[in-house]
Write a protein that binds this DNA or RNA. Sequence first.
DNA 1: GACAGAGTAGGACAATTGACCTAATTTCGG
DNA 2: CCGAAATTAGGTCAATTGTCCTACTCTGTC
Lengths: 198, 198
Amino acid sequence: MAAETRERIVEAADLLIYQHGFEVTSFADIAATVGISRGNFYHHFKTKDDILDGVINRRLANTEQMLDRWEIAGSDPAERIRSFIHILIVNGEKIRRYGCPVGTLSSELAKLNHTAKSDAAALFTLFRSWLCRQFERLGFGDKSDELAMHILGRSQGVATLANAFDDDRFLHHEVELMCAWLDDQIAGLANKNNPDRE
Amino acid sequence: MAAETRERIVEAADLLIYQHGFEVTSFADIAATVGISRGNFYHHFKTKDDILDGVINRRLANTEQMLDRWEIAGSDPAERIRSFIHILIVNGEKIRRYGCPVGTLSSELAKLNHTAKSDAAALFTLFRSWLCRQFERLGFGDKSDELAMHILGRSQGVATLANAFDDDRFLHHEVELMCAWLDDQIAGLANKNNPDRE
DNA sequence: GACAGAGTAGGACAATTGACCTAATTTCGG
DNA sequence: CCGAAATTAGGTCAATTGTCCTACTCTGTC
């Protein structure tokens, strides 16, 4: 089946690009991983940029799916945000080795001046608007996007340093700080709405 | 002069590696930028890793020098930390285009499984221990390193997102938040030492 | 059972890579 | 001023890159 082979190629490319970067991942590497010839490869993807496109779309779909799952699983927006924060722990080992898939790809494409940089940024936007929506539901109104960006940035920083220092304790500590920050924000909002209490 | 040529090579390599990444920067690129032949190049640096070594050492020296300057310029440790935070604004344009020089190099070397990854991490360590020292002077004791890592991580995250979204406003806003966080930490410390006040 | 078309394999290709060599040139101490 | 050492220029080398082509094999339809 062609669609299946294509899927296997994208899957392998996704992993290799995450682990070693887009530029250094060659046609030969991907073909060898999948176990097909380079010629067959060309049948599915004309250029390397086509593969990148496929990988990014795959990641977009997977991410969307994950966010939808969270949307269903917990009814509390705060709990959903905590789910996001905890990716850092769930994927801790991979992050310590290869960094954040979204952030590192975006950085690399920026340096390569690659056309697909905006597509990679769309991955960030997916998280951003999802987080924004959760904050809005919590009642943060216009500040929601700022808060979403803040937490997104914190995650990126934690991923970068956890990778640089291969430090699991730092990662866990920062996750706790982020959750505490979230509680503070929510408490502050409740305080603002009921200034008489406390 | 040989030392001068070597210096020019390292300087050009530094810039190119920052702007386009280590892997994609070739001997030919650097040689062309400096305006020397590829053969001459080999006389100064046997391998590509040698150049990377030179670039990292150059960055280490420059960073150390900058931190020393800050050490002398302001007597207030808090003000020094604010100097660090404000690099994000001072280098804002470059960061939005190419990201943080330290973070992006560290990420790339991690993906390449490169031996020099630890050397790149040493750049982080330079900032980390300098920040830690400032917090210690402010009286944060054992918490100083945690705080240093926290602020280092925040900077990294801001750089990554400012780069991904090419967003200057976000960058400025987050710098303000970091400064506010710093003030909070200091206020909290003073409060702990004089619990009777306020 | 012949045939069309999708799928696959293996290789050719020009260009570029890091690495290396040799010869010419410059520099400078005696 | 000379000769040795340091520096530079230009070019070669095998290996690898992305791209592209042709020939073979399968599958399903008439």
